[in-house]
Amino acid sequence: MSADLTELYQQVILDHNKRPRNRGRLPTANRVAHGDNPTCGDQCSVYLRLENGKIADISFDGSGCAISQASSSLMTTQLKGKDAAEAASLYQQFHQIVTTGEAPEAISDLAAFAGVHTFPARIKCATLGWHAALNALKGDPIPATTESRLD
């Protein structure tokens, strides 16, 4: 296996793919958003319970490749307790990691996704859950298809 591939499928990513954290619909959620990757058909829904402007609880579900599943899983562990501004700033750092491979210091497990930058086709897999989470925070209107899927 090549170094690039080992770097892409790090142990942290494999672990989150196999045992996703915070997976499933959150019964107490008061925000939800859905992300689609039309290229591959991957889907991700993110559920939030916002309390006093902070993410009190978060979960995700959907289907996708190891990168998108692990990224969404890890994201939920990082976003709990954050407010919208903190979440946006964390996403900026994550985006930098997956597009340049350079991780700011003290960014914890998210640095595991540095290997994505050598596989440009997979960047969207890594950011799918994040887009859904940020949309949920903004309270963007939920597309009709999402609502029917949530029924």
Partner: peptide
């Protein structure tokens, strides 16, 4: 146990 895109990325290797 393996998503199609992960298969394609590995096979490309």
């Amino acid at each position: 146990d393996v998503h199609a895109h992960d298969v394609v990325t590995f096979a490309d290797e």
